[in-house]
Computed example of a mutant assay.
Amino acid sequence: MKILCVCLSSTIQRTIKFDSFTTGQINRSQIWREDASGKALNAARVLNQLEEGSSVALCPVGNSNAEHFMVLASRDNDLYVHPIYVEGNTRECWTLLDAKTGSTTEVISDAAEDLHHLAGAEAELDLIESIREYMAVCDALLIAGSRPVTWSKNICARICEVAHKAGKPILADFRGEDLLDTLKVCTPQIIKINEDEFYQTFGNSSLSENELEQAISKKSEELHNIIVVTRGAKDTLAAENGKSYRCPTEKVTPLNTTACGDSFDAGFIREYLLSKNIEAALSLGNHCGALNSQTIVPGSIKKAGEN
């Protein structure tokens, strides 16, 4: 099995761990690392940890810091990246881990004019053509993460349409207008978003537990697909063609909550493709998310330094 993971927002992620962190003071870190990252790229790393060679990450990489990004990717034995080179910089993100409070804080350099990929028509055509070629040999498409504002508004829909026409299952982990525009073109077999993203996309808000479960079921029945809604430490809710499912999360003390959702994506799609059992897929997805929370590496189910 091989899954193509498309990541429009590739990232150079710097993770910094402190015994304690206090604003307004000098803070000295105990651990510092850099990783090639981004939502779908993180999912690709976890997929390759579950089964070697089972995924490839296709992502735009800004020319200005492409060499550094690709060096980071090449150091990661659990990651294979196919870059689409574009003008500008790959964005950068800092994750601050406070061991005393157990908190995770992300700081993202997100200024479109100098830290996003400056995509053009040629790069978008290259991306779409590459996806078309991979769909001939891959079993599914996983597309996750936000669309940089410098990419065409319909790029997510175009990406999903390629996989749909190839008859391949799609897991879509993005929200809002990009998801609604995609649904006008095709319906991903699996939509996985968090609770806030479900509200933002489908127009609900402040629902009770039962109301949220019913809303997910109703939307799944309407779309004839699977919808999965993750909610942090609370039970994961899902529905398949209107039938509701609930899966408890594993109770752990997290070290780093970054990319737990991406790790869930990897576990869920792998198990679902293998067994077509949504309960088993929810269980493996939650397990991968829990394992990821125990490591400082974004999108990993094994601790740093493990083989």
Score class of each variant (00 low, 15 high):
Met1His: 09
Leu4Tyr: 05
Val6Asn: 07
Cys7Gly: 06
Ser10Met: 05
Ile12Met: 02
Arg14Pro: 05
Asp19Gly: 08
Arg33Cys: 08
Asp35Val: 00
Ser37Tyr: 01
Lys39Val: 11
Leu41Phe: 01
Asn42Val: 12
Arg45Thr: 07
Asn48Ser: 09
Glu52Val: 06
Val56Phe: 04
Ala57Tyr: 06
Leu58Ser: 11
Cys59Tyr: 00
Val61Asp: 10
Asn63Gln: 15
Asn65Leu: 12
Glu67Pro: 00
Glu67Val: 11
Phe69Val: 11
Met70Ser: 07
Met70Trp: 03
Met70Glu: 09
Leu72Thr: 05
Ala73Phe: 10
Ala73Ser: 14
Asn77Gln: 13
Val81Thr: 03
Pro83Phe: 02
Ile84Gly: 12
Glu92Thr: 15
Cys93Ser: 14
Trp94Asn: 11
Trp94Phe: 09
Asp98Val: 03
Asp98Lys: 02
Asp98Leu: 04
Asp98Gly: 08
Lys100Asp: 11
Gly102Cys: 09
Glu106Ser: 12
Glu106Tyr: 03
Val107Pro: 01
Val107His: 03
Ser109Leu: 09
Ser109Arg: 06
Ala112Pro: 10
Asp114Asn: 13
Leu115Met: 13
His117Lys: 00
Glu122Ile: 10
Ala123Cys: 12
Glu124Arg: 07
Glu129Ile: 02
Ile131Leu: 13
Glu133Arg: 15
Tyr134Pro: 00
Ala136Asn: 07
Val137Phe: 03
Asp139Ser: 14
Asp139Lys: 08
Ala140Gln: 10
Ile143Asn: 04
Ala144Tyr: 04
Trp151Thr: 04
Ala157Ile: 03
Ile159Cys: 15
Cys160Arg: 07
Ala163Leu: 05
Lys168Gly: 09
Pro169Met: 04
Asp173Thr: 08
Arg175Ala: 14
Asp178Phe: 05
Thr182Pro: 13
Thr182Leu: 10
Leu183Trp: 06
Cys186Thr: 14
Thr187Ser: 13
Gln189Pro: 05
Ile190Ser: 08
Ile193Lys: 03
Ile193Leu: 11
Glu195Phe: 03
Phe198Ala: 10
Phe202Ala: 07
Asn204Ile: 00
Ser205Val: 04
Ser206Gly: 14
Leu207Glu: 06
Glu209Tyr: 12
Glu209Leu: 13
Gln214Ser: 10
Gln214Thr: 12
Ala215Lys: 02
Ile216Ala: 01
Lys219Tyr: 08
Asn225Thr: 06
Ile227Met: 00
Val228Lys: 00
Val229Leu: 00
Val229Gln: 00
Thr230Arg: 01
Thr230Ala: 01
Ala233Gln: 08
Asp235Gln: 04
Ala238Gln: 01
Ala239Gln: 00
Asn241Gln: 01
Asn241His: 00
Arg246His: 00
Glu250Arg: 02
Val252Ile: 15
Pro254Tyr: 01
Leu255Met: 07
Ala259Tyr: 02
Asp262Ile: 07
Ser263Ile: 10
Asp265Met: 04
Asp265Asn: 15
Ala266Asn: 03
Arg270Lys: 15
Arg270Asn: 13
Leu273Lys: 03
Leu273Ser: 09
Leu273Asp: 07
Leu274Cys: 11
Ala280Val: 02
Leu282Met: 03
Leu284Asn: 12
Asn286Ile: 03
Cys288Val: 12
Gly289Tyr: 01
Ala290Ser: 15
Leu291Trp: 03
Leu291Val: 10
Ser293His: 03
Gln294Asp: 03
Val297Gln: 13
Gly299Tyr: 07
Gly305Pro: 04
Glu306Gln: 13
Asn307Asp: 14
Asn307Cys: 09
